[in-house]
């Protein structure tokens, strides 16, 4: 079972540091995970990750960017993401359990509205870096509600009506 962590196109080194701390790795292991895949983005974290000590029965892989993270989401049992809409929607679209980690530097930013709303609708959990380990331990991901599939036809029908095609 693997965990996929993504920071999108931004940098969020604090998140990468948080999920690679001993306490976090220990929590992952206790929950039955044995693999951690990190998409680290524009941050300066690469070198430090290479220095991570070899762990017993637990692998850590990392890369900065890929054209598509779809495969990594698909093969993960849990996704940990920054609050970006792209990553959130892709993860929920793939019906994967999601824990969003809010970047404290963005507090008050409208970009967090989406994560808060989807939490209220019980599609994800969220936390900050400082509360990550306890949130991971205490969250029951089986209680999350599946995110409804998007319906492109709604928009197509609406526009067709507006233009008189129907």
């Amino acid at each position: 079972m693997s965990v996929f962590v993504t920071v999108g196109t931004t940098k969020f080194d604090n998140l990468i540091n948080t999920v690679t701390k001993y306490s976090a790795i220990k929590a992952f292991q206790d929950l039955g995970y044995n693999r951690l895949v990190l998409q680290t983005g524009a941050g300066k974290i690469q070198k430090e990750l290479d220095q991570l000590e070899e762990l017993d029965k637990f692998t850590v892989e990392h890369y900065d960017f890929k054209p598509s993270i779809t495969e990594d989401i698909e093969s993960a049992s849990l996704v940990i993401s920054h609050a970006g809409a792209g990553s959130i929607l892709e993860t929920l679209g793939a019906k994967k359990p999601l824990l969003v980690v809010i970047n404290e530097d963005l507090m008050g930013n409208h970009q967090l509205e989406l994560a808060y709303q989807l939490y209220r609708d019980q599609h994800l959990y969220y936390c900050e870096c400082s509360t990550f380990v306890e949130t991971l331990k205490s969250s029951d991901f089986t209680k999350l509600k599946p995110f409804p599939d998007k319906k492109p036809k709604l928009f197509v029908d609406y526009l067709d009506n507006l233009l008189g095609f129907k």
Binding site: A85, H110, E113, L114, Q117, L162, L163
Partner: peptide, 16 residues
């Protein structure tokens, strides 16, 4: 001419 503006899904509380 029809001008159609689709607000981003990120906008939950306020318009951009």
């Amino acid at each position: 001419l029809k001008i159609v503006y689709a607000e981003s899904i990120c906008r939950v509380e306020t318009l951009s």
